[in-house]
């Protein structure tokens, strides 16, 4: 049985207190929200914080607010709350469906949207016990200098495995990061970095406090598809989100939108819809989108299962995501 090493816990009640603690302790502190990612990772010795800053009691970080052009989602809003939230059902239904596919019900009641966006990247050679990792001489992401996925790899390719990130990137969302000396807003596209060792721009001392999701127009259709062995619990083997602006009589004409594929490497991958813009969204257009995505996606042996199969599944998942968008 894996045990947790000792750490201290602080439980601030305001954002100011929380960011002051994070600033004071820098790399020695970790943020705890729902704990569903942090605790298993601590058990595996993937982080060794001296201080855990538990933000569960911080006021004002929970709930979804209609802020005109956007929905503002507090970082502590649980995935279970998002699944059923009336504002999401109306303005961002794809996000509700992506949130509903994270883990299982117990973890969705604990896990938060902020936590899912900051989910540590995952890899077969990383999400293992310290004993297991030591036997291989550790890896590029943690404690070692060798990548076991890419021969001579110099950059970590651990995979972004967060369902809501794929969808929120397709929706053009941005996050709000608070530090002691101010607040900044970062579009999700600029939030994720192509480095599995640290795949977000969150600096030491910064806290993700809110997600801002542009409300859909009546033309926007949102779809999400996730590849996994079991219909619950599992992280994605492939994650595809699509925001499609479709106008006119069915099948309708594509006027805009974005396709995003994730669970590949550290950053979700954007696939432009330019090739089908102005065209009818018929089977031919959907197939072309699948081909385009297939050409851009190169699954690796960083997560479970045969990468060739996962690549073959890209067009299938694109089709499922579009179907989810059109028929949900």
């Amino acid at each position: 049985m894996l045990r947790l090493d000792p750490f201290k816990v602080e439980r601030p009640t305001t954002v100011d207190e929380a960011v002051a603690l994070l600033a004071a302790h820098g790399a020695k502190a970790r943020v705890l929200a729902g704990g569903t990612d942090l605790l298993p990772n601590l058990k595996h010795g993937l982080h060794q914080p001296e201080l855990v800053v538990s933000i569960g009691g911080v006021a004002g970080l929970r709930g979804v607010k209609d802020a005109g052009e956007v929905l503002e989602i507090g970082a502590l809003t649980t995935l279970a709350e998002l699944e059923r939230h009336p504002l999401l059902a109306q303005f961002a239904p794809g996000l509700a469906r992506a949130a509903a596919q994270v883990a299982g019900p117990q973890l969705r009641r604990m896990g938060t949207i902020g936590g899912n966006l900051c989910l540590d990247t995952r890899c077969l050679y990383y999400n293992q016990s310290a004993f297991w990792r030591e036997a291989l001489g550790y890896c590029l992401k943690k404690d070692g200098s060798v990548c076991h996925v890419v021969a001579d790899g110099k950059k970590c390719v651990a995979a972004a495995s967060n369902d809501t990130a794929t969808m929120l990137m397709a929706l053009g969302a941005e996050v709000e990061l608070r530090a002691r000396d101010g607040t900044r807003r970062v579009p999700l596209d600029a939030f994720y970095l192509p480095d599995g060792a640290k795949n977000t721009v969150v600096d030491e001392g910064e806290l993700l406090v809110c997600v801002r999701v542009p409300k859909g127009s009546p033309a926007r259709r949102e779809g999400y598809a996730k590849l996994r062995h079991r219909n619950s619990i599992d992280f994605p083997l492939l994650s595809v989100a699509v925001a499609l602006d479709v106008e006119g009589v069915a099948p309708g004409t594509v006027t805009g939108g974005l396709l995003v594929v994730s669970a590949l490497q550290a950053r979700p991958l954007r696939v432009s819809l330019d090739a089908v813009r102005g065209r009818a969204l018929d089977d031919g257009a959907i197939e072309e989108l699948g081909r385009l995505a297939h050409g851009r996606c190169h699954p690796m042996t960083n997560i479970a299962d045969d990468p060739a199969w996962r690549r073959d599944m890209v067009p299938v998942l694109v089709r499922r995501a579009v179907a989810d968008a059109l028929h949900a």
């Binding site: 049985m1 704990g35 569903t36 605790l39 298993p40 855990v52 299982g104 019900p105 619990i233």
Partner: peptide, 25 residues
């Protein structure tokens, strides 16, 4: 012990959660 199996499910304020990942504090 990783929140996957549900054997440790308890109700906290009426919500079923995984007590193996629920910090006691």
């Amino acid at each position: 012990g990783e929140g996957e199996c549900g054997a440790c499910t308890v109700l906290v304020d009426g919500r079923a959660v995984a007590s193996c990942l629920f910090p006691a504090l």
